[in-house]
Every structure is written in C-alpha cells, then in structure tokens.
C-alpha cells in the first residue's frame, strides 16, 4: 500500500511547512493542503462523511476565516521578532522528545488489523446519522448552544468601543 505512505509523507511535510513557513499566508495555504491530505486519509479509511465535513468545515470555513483575519491585520509592517534561538531549540527538542516518548510507549502495542467485513459501512452517512440522532441527540443539540454562545462572544469581542481600550 504505497499510496498510504506517500499520502502520509505529504501530510507530514506540509504540516512541517505550516510551522516553518515565514509568511503567515503561506502557512495558511500549507494548512489547507494538510487538511486535504487528511481528508484523503479519511477516504482511505472509508469515512466519507468525515471527508466531506473536513473539507467543508476545516478547509472551507475555518481556513477562510484565518485567511481573512491575516489579510485584515496587515502583518507586513511588523515582522515578528523571532524568539531567541535557545527558546526555539528548546521547543524543538521538547517536541521531538515527546514524539520519542509516544513512539517508545506504543512500540510494543499490537493493535492488529481491521476485523472482518462488518466494518465496511461504518463511515457512511447512513450509519453515522442513525447513531448521531439516536444516541448522541443531546450533545448534538448542545453544540447548537455552543455555537450560539461562540457567536455572541465573537460579536461582543469584535465590537469597537468608542475610544476605550478593550482590556
């Protein structure tokens, strides 16, 4: 299954580019590409509903929001001073160490492959809709409350007070 390894390498590479790109716009575009690669992984996992939602919500809505904010902020005039090299090195070493710990902890884990043919319909809209509207109906409705609160919060934070500092 060479395509899996190709897609994984592509995902990791573009994720690294998100972190290390100098220009924030490039960073956002690499992140969109990363999300498309992750959607490809969802297709390989036969999770087609998640693939569609990932593209629509993440690559479509959230990333456009990021892009708009970056374009609004005019970041060109204040090029961010980089942290001291020691801090950057410490952060990179810490992240790498965490990865080593994760791999060491899961190295001898034997999770096995997928079992039988029962799972072919798992990620389809039909089975997900049945479980979402039956078992998870209350969390689904609570999400709407969360969205409402988030919307009110964003409007309140974005409102410009007359001549006042906001914090």
């Amino acid at each position: 299954m060479n395509f899996w390894y190709f897609l994984t390498a592509l995902t990791l590479l573009s994720a690294l580019m998100v972190v290390f790109a100098k220009n924030p716009i490039h960073s956002v575009l690499y992140l969109v590409f990363t999300f498309f690669c992750i959607s490809g992984h969802y297709v390989l996992l036969n999770a087609q509903f998640l693939m569609a939602v990932n593209i629509i919500v993440y690559a479509g809505a959230i990333m456009v929001l990021f892009l708009f904010v970056i374009m609004m902020l005019d970041l060109r005039k204040n090029v961010p001073e980089s942290k001291s090299n020691l801090t950057k090195l410490a952060g990179a070493v810490l992240g790498g160490t965490l990865l080593v710990v994760f791999i060491a902890a899961t190295r001898h884990m034997n999770l096995g492959n997928g079992s039988g043919a029962i799972g072919a319909q798992t990620g389809m809209v039909e089975s997900l809709g049945m479980i979402l509207y039956k078992d998870y109906l209350l969390p689904f409705e609570l999400v709407s409350v969360l969205f409402f609160v988030a919307m009110v919060g964003a409007v309140m934070l974005g409102k410009r007070e007359a001549g006042e500092r906001n914090f």
């Binding site: 939602v53 809505a61 798992t122 998870y136 919060g153």
Partner: peptide, 27 residues
C-alpha cells in the same frame, strides 16, 4: 474504522464543531 464503531466518528464531528467555535472566538 478499524473497530467498526461509528461512535468514534461522531466524536470527530463534535470535535470539529468545538474547533469551529473556538476559532471564531479566538480570532
């Protein structure tokens, strides 16, 4: 997908919803 349990994908759906709300407030 490996364990043929759709509940995990429902959780992913909820995580996406929470991430969308978080991004709106954070930005």
């Amino acid at each position: 997908s490996y364990k043929a349990d759709p509940a995990g994908q429902v959780f992913v759906f909820f995580i996406m919803a929470v991430a969308a709300a978080e991004v709106a407030v954070g930005l």
